[in-house]
Design a protein around this nucleic acid. Structure first.
Lengths: 211, 211
DNA sequence: TGGAAACTACGTAAAACTACTTAGGACCCT
DNA sequence: AGGGTCCTAAGTAGTTTTACGTAGTTTCCA
C-alpha cells in the first residue's frame, strides 16, 4: 500500500515529535517537518506531500496568508490547520484560504488520523469543538465573526489610536476633529463589534493587527 | 540501571506525545501523564516521579501556584517548568516557587534530556534562551517596568478579570468583595504597572498570559 | 512572635466614557 | 439625479473609572 505522505509545519519541536509519534503506527510517511514559514516553503518547493499539517501561529509568517499562498501554488496539497484557536473567525479565514481541515492542538491520535483520511478523500474535516462553535454561531446568533464586520477607514484609524492608549480627547486633537465626533465613532465601533467595553475593543484591535 | 521516573502535565496531548517520543529511547520511565491540574494532583498522590514536567498554562489551575503546592507537599519531586513564555518574570516566579528547571516548548530532545539529568543531580537547569534574557535583564538593565513588577495574587486575579471584560462591579460580585476594594486593587495595579489607562492594563494582561 | 505585605473598605471629587438621537455636507455608485 | 455610506458634530443624561487619602484586619514568614 502506498503510504500517505505528510508534511509538518509547527514552531514547537515537541508538537512535531508528538505528531510523528501519533502517526508512526499507521500508513503515513512524514516527508518533512519544519518549524518556520520560510523552511516550509523551501520544503514544499522540493516535495509536495499529500497532506500538510500547518500551525497557524508561526514566528516568521502569518498562517492564514501562508495557507492561501500554498493552496494557490500547490493545489494538490491538502492543508490541515493545526492551532489552539477555536474562534470561528480563524476557521472561516483558513477554510476560505484553502484549508481542507481544522484541528485543535489538543487533538488525539484517532481524530488526527480520521482528519487526514477525510481530507485525502476530498472531504472537509473540522474538529468537533470547532464545528460546535460554528453551529452555535449560526443557531444562537452568537456574535458573527469578527472580520465580517467591516470598520470604515476612519473607524479603524480611531480603533488603532484607542489601542495605542490615547484618550478620546487626545484622539480628537490628533485628528483635528471634535471630541464628540470621536465619541460617535467610538460608539459606532462598539456597536458594530458588539463590544461591551474598552477591553473588547482592545482585543479586537489585537485580532485585527492594529497593535 | 534503575530508570528515572517522569510525570507529565500538559493540556495538549500532542505535546505529551512529543515528550514521550523524545524520552522513549533513553533511561526514562513515564509513570503518568495528565492534561489538567486536578488530574496531576491525583496522580501525584498515587505516585511521585523523580521529575515532573509541568506546563505552566493549564486550563483549570495556575501553574505557578501548582508548582508551589507540589514542591511543598512533595519536596523530592524535581519540577521542570515547560512553557512558551520566556519572560524573566515567569522564570523567577517558578524558581521561587520550587521549580528546578525551566524549558521552553520549542526545546529539542538533547536539551530536555540534559535538563532532566541536571535536575536529577540536584542542579538547576534553565533553557539557554531564558538564561540569556535573565542575563540581558541584569546586564543591560532592560526595562524593569514591565516584567519585574510583581503583582500580588489578588491583583493578578483582578487583572485577569478586567481582561475578561468584567466591570469593576461584576468583579466585586464575583469575588465577594466590595466595589471600593476592587477599585483600590485596580488603582494599585495601574500604579505598579505605570499604566495610563485601561488599555495598558489589557496589554499587560496579554503579556502575562492572562488572556 | 513581631513586622511587613496583602487584602479589605470608605469618602469625596473629578475625569472619562456610554447611550441614544438627530443632522448636515461629502462622496460614490447606478 | 437619487440613494447609500461616511465623516462630521451636538444635545442630554447617565454610568464607570480614576485620583488620593485613610485605615482596620488578615496572612505570611523570618
Amino acid at each position: 500500500m502506498i503510504p500517505i505522505t505528510i508534511g509538518i509545519a509547527d514552531d514547537h519541536l515537541l508538537v512535531i515529535q508528538g505528531i510523528r509519534a501519533m502517526l508512526s503506527k499507521s500508513n503515513f510517511e512524514i516527508v518533512f517537518s519544519t518549524n518556520n514559514g520560510k523552511g516550509l516553503l523551501e520544503n514544499l518547493y522540493e516535495i509536495q506531500p499529500d497532506v500538510l499539517l500547518l500551525d497557524i501561529q508561526m514566528p516568521d509568517m502569518n498562517g492564514i496568508d501562508l495557507c492561501r499562498e500554498i493552496s494557490r501554488n500547490y493545489p494538490d496539497v491538502k492543508i490541515i490547520a493545526l492551532t489552539n484557536m477555536d474562534e470561528s473567525h480563524y476557521v472561516k479565514q483558513m477554510i476560505r484560504n484553502g484549508a481542507h481541515g481544522y484541528l485543535l492542538k489538543n487533538t488525539d491520535q484517532t481524530t488526527m488520523i480520521e482528519a487526514i483520511e477525510e481530507v485525502m478523500m476530498g472531504n472537509q474535516y473540522l474538529d468537533r469543538q470547532v464545528q460546535q462553535s460554528l453551529m452555535d454561531e449560526v443557531l444562537l446568533g452568537k456574535r458573527r465573526s469578527v472580520q465580517q464586520v467591516m470598520l470604515t477607514k476612519r473607524e479603524t484609524e480611531i480603533l488603532a489610536l484607542i489601542a495605542a492608549e490615547y484618550s478620546n480627547n487626545e484622539i480628537a486633537e490628533q485628528l483635528f476633529i471634535s471630541l464628540r465626533t470621536v465619541e460617535t465613532h467610538r460608539l459606532n465601533i462598539s456597536h458594530k463589534l458588539n463590544a461591551k467595553n474598552l477591553v473588547s475593543l482592545v482585543k479586537e484591535a489585537y485580532k485585527r493587527g492594529l497593535i
